[in-house]
Protein backbone atom coordinates (compact mmCIF):
# COMPACT_ATOMS: atom_id res chain seq x y z
CA UNK A 1 0.00 0.00 0.00
CA UNK A 2 1.21 3.53 -0.88
CA UNK A 3 4.11 2.08 -2.87
CA UNK A 4 3.15 4.01 -5.99
CA UNK A 5 1.20 7.16 -5.34
CA UNK A 6 -0.41 9.09 -8.17
CA UNK A 7 -0.67 12.82 -7.50
CA UNK A 8 -2.63 14.78 -10.09
CA UNK A 9 -1.84 18.48 -9.79
CA UNK A 10 -3.23 21.55 -11.49
CA UNK A 11 -1.25 24.30 -9.80
CA UNK A 12 -3.99 25.17 -7.30
CA UNK A 13 -3.36 25.66 -3.58
CA UNK A 14 -5.13 22.41 -2.62
CA UNK A 15 -3.15 20.43 -5.15
CA UNK A 16 0.09 21.57 -3.49
CA UNK A 17 -1.30 20.47 -0.14
CA UNK A 18 -2.14 17.11 -1.71
CA UNK A 19 1.46 16.89 -2.92
CA UNK A 20 2.74 17.55 0.61
CA UNK A 21 0.45 14.87 2.04
CA UNK A 22 1.51 12.40 -0.64
CA UNK A 23 5.17 13.12 0.11
CA UNK A 24 4.57 12.44 3.80
CA UNK A 25 2.85 9.12 3.05
CA UNK A 26 5.49 8.11 0.51
CA UNK A 27 8.25 8.74 3.05
CA UNK A 28 6.47 6.66 5.69
CA UNK A 29 5.58 3.83 3.35
CA UNK A 30 8.76 3.98 1.31
CA UNK A 31 6.86 4.57 -1.91
CA UNK A 32 7.36 6.48 -5.13
CA UNK A 33 5.47 9.51 -6.44
CA UNK A 34 3.94 9.86 -9.86
CA UNK A 35 3.01 13.46 -10.46
CA UNK A 36 0.81 14.28 -13.44
CA UNK A 37 -0.70 17.42 -14.81
CA UNK A 38 -3.64 17.07 -17.17
CA UNK A 39 -4.28 19.82 -19.67
CA UNK A 40 -7.68 20.06 -21.24
CA UNK A 41 -7.92 21.40 -24.77
CA UNK A 42 -10.98 23.40 -25.84
CA UNK A 43 -11.77 24.08 -22.21
CA UNK A 44 -11.39 27.75 -22.98
CA UNK A 45 -14.62 29.60 -23.58
CA UNK A 46 -12.68 31.93 -25.86
CA UNK A 47 -11.94 29.02 -28.18
CA UNK A 48 -15.63 28.68 -28.86
CA UNK A 49 -15.77 32.20 -30.22
CA UNK A 50 -13.09 31.66 -32.85
CA UNK A 51 -13.26 29.22 -35.77
CA UNK A 52 -11.88 25.84 -34.73
CA UNK A 53 -9.29 25.16 -37.38
CA UNK A 54 -6.22 23.04 -36.84
CA UNK A 55 -3.92 26.03 -36.47
CA UNK A 56 -5.94 27.52 -33.63
CA UNK A 57 -6.10 24.18 -31.83
CA UNK A 58 -2.37 23.57 -32.05
CA UNK A 59 -1.67 27.09 -30.91
CA UNK A 60 -4.03 26.69 -27.95
CA UNK A 61 -2.53 23.35 -27.05
CA UNK A 62 1.06 24.54 -27.14
CA UNK A 63 0.01 27.45 -24.97
CA UNK A 64 -1.56 25.02 -22.48
CA UNK A 65 1.47 22.77 -22.59
CA UNK A 66 3.65 25.70 -21.59
CA UNK A 67 1.44 26.25 -18.56
CA UNK A 68 1.49 22.52 -17.77
CA UNK A 69 5.27 22.45 -17.98
CA UNK A 70 5.45 25.39 -15.62
CA UNK A 71 3.18 23.64 -13.10
CA UNK A 72 5.38 20.54 -13.26
CA UNK A 73 8.50 22.69 -12.78
CA UNK A 74 7.00 24.15 -9.60
CA UNK A 75 6.13 20.62 -8.49
CA UNK A 76 9.74 19.58 -9.09
CA UNK A 77 10.91 22.34 -6.78
CA UNK A 78 8.37 21.29 -4.14
CA UNK A 79 9.52 17.68 -4.04
CA UNK A 80 13.22 18.56 -4.19
CA UNK A 81 13.69 17.31 -0.62
CA UNK A 82 12.03 13.96 -1.32
CA UNK A 83 14.41 10.97 -1.24
CA UNK A 84 12.40 8.39 -3.18
CA UNK A 85 11.68 8.05 -6.89
CA UNK A 86 9.56 10.72 -8.53
CA UNK A 87 8.04 10.63 -12.02
CA UNK A 88 6.50 13.53 -13.89
CA UNK A 89 4.07 13.38 -16.78
CA UNK A 90 1.96 15.77 -18.81
CA UNK A 91 -1.31 14.33 -20.09
CA UNK A 92 -3.78 15.80 -22.56
CA UNK A 93 -7.50 15.15 -22.30
CA UNK A 94 -10.43 15.09 -19.94
CA UNK A 95 -8.94 15.42 -16.43
CA UNK A 96 -10.83 12.81 -14.38
CA UNK A 97 -10.80 10.30 -17.23
CA UNK A 98 -7.06 10.76 -17.88
CA UNK A 99 -6.27 10.47 -14.16
CA UNK A 100 -8.18 7.19 -13.78
CA UNK A 101 -6.71 5.62 -16.90
CA UNK A 102 -3.21 6.79 -15.95
CA UNK A 103 -3.60 5.15 -12.53
CA UNK A 104 -4.60 1.91 -14.24
CA UNK A 105 -1.89 2.01 -16.88
CA UNK A 106 0.83 2.82 -14.38
CA UNK A 107 -0.42 0.36 -11.72
CA UNK A 108 -0.62 3.06 -9.06
CA UNK A 109 -1.97 1.69 -5.77
CA UNK A 110 -3.36 4.97 -4.46
CA UNK A 111 -4.28 8.46 -5.60
CA UNK A 112 -3.81 11.64 -3.57
CA UNK A 113 -5.79 14.57 -4.95
CA UNK A 114 -6.92 18.03 -3.86
CA UNK A 115 -10.62 18.37 -3.19
CA UNK A 116 -11.12 21.48 -5.26
CA UNK A 117 -8.88 22.60 -8.07
CA UNK A 118 -8.53 25.61 -10.26
CA UNK A 119 -12.10 25.77 -11.45
CA UNK A 120 -13.23 26.50 -7.91
CA UNK A 121 -16.87 27.33 -7.61
CA UNK A 122 -17.65 26.12 -11.15
CA UNK A 123 -17.17 22.59 -9.85
CA UNK A 124 -20.02 23.18 -7.52
CA UNK A 125 -22.33 23.05 -10.50
CA UNK A 126 -20.46 20.86 -12.93
CA UNK A 127 -19.26 18.08 -10.64
CA UNK A 128 -15.66 18.05 -9.56
CA UNK A 129 -12.69 16.07 -10.79
CA UNK A 130 -11.93 14.78 -7.31
CA UNK A 131 -15.40 13.37 -6.71
CA UNK A 132 -15.39 11.67 -10.11
CA UNK A 133 -11.95 10.20 -9.48
CA UNK A 134 -12.94 8.97 -6.01
CA UNK A 135 -16.07 7.30 -7.37
CA UNK A 136 -14.59 5.64 -10.43
CA UNK A 137 -10.99 4.82 -9.52
CA UNK A 138 -10.35 1.23 -8.47
CA UNK A 139 -7.71 2.17 -5.87
CA UNK A 140 -8.06 4.11 -2.59
CA UNK A 141 -8.32 7.86 -3.16
CA UNK A 142 -7.12 10.37 -0.56
CA UNK A 143 -8.94 13.69 -0.88
CA UNK A 144 -7.02 16.59 0.67
CA UNK A 145 -8.72 19.85 1.60
Amino acid sequence: MFKKILVPIDGSETSWRALEEAQLLAEKFDGELHIINVIQPYNNAALLAVPLDQATITQGNSELEKIGDKVLTIAKEKVAGFKGKVDFALEVGHPSERIISFAKKDNCDSIVIGSRGLSGIAEFFLGSVSSKVSQYATVPVLIVK
Partner: peptide, 16 residues
Protein backbone atom coordinates in the same frame (compact mmCIF):
# COMPACT_ATOMS: atom_id res chain seq x y z
CA UNK B 1 -19.08 8.90 1.34
CA UNK B 2 -19.72 11.62 -1.23
CA UNK B 3 -21.40 13.81 1.36
CA UNK B 4 -18.71 13.26 3.97
CA UNK B 5 -15.81 13.83 1.57
CA UNK B 6 -17.30 17.12 0.44
CA UNK B 7 -18.15 18.42 3.89
CA UNK B 8 -15.40 17.58 6.38
CA UNK B 9 -12.30 19.72 6.81
CA UNK B 10 -9.75 16.91 7.14
CA UNK B 11 -8.33 14.61 4.42
CA UNK B 12 -10.58 11.71 3.45
CA UNK B 13 -9.54 8.39 1.93
CA UNK B 14 -12.18 6.67 -0.16
CA UNK B 15 -11.55 2.91 -0.33
CA UNK B 16 -13.02 0.49 -2.85
Amino acid sequence: SAKVSQTVECPVIIVK
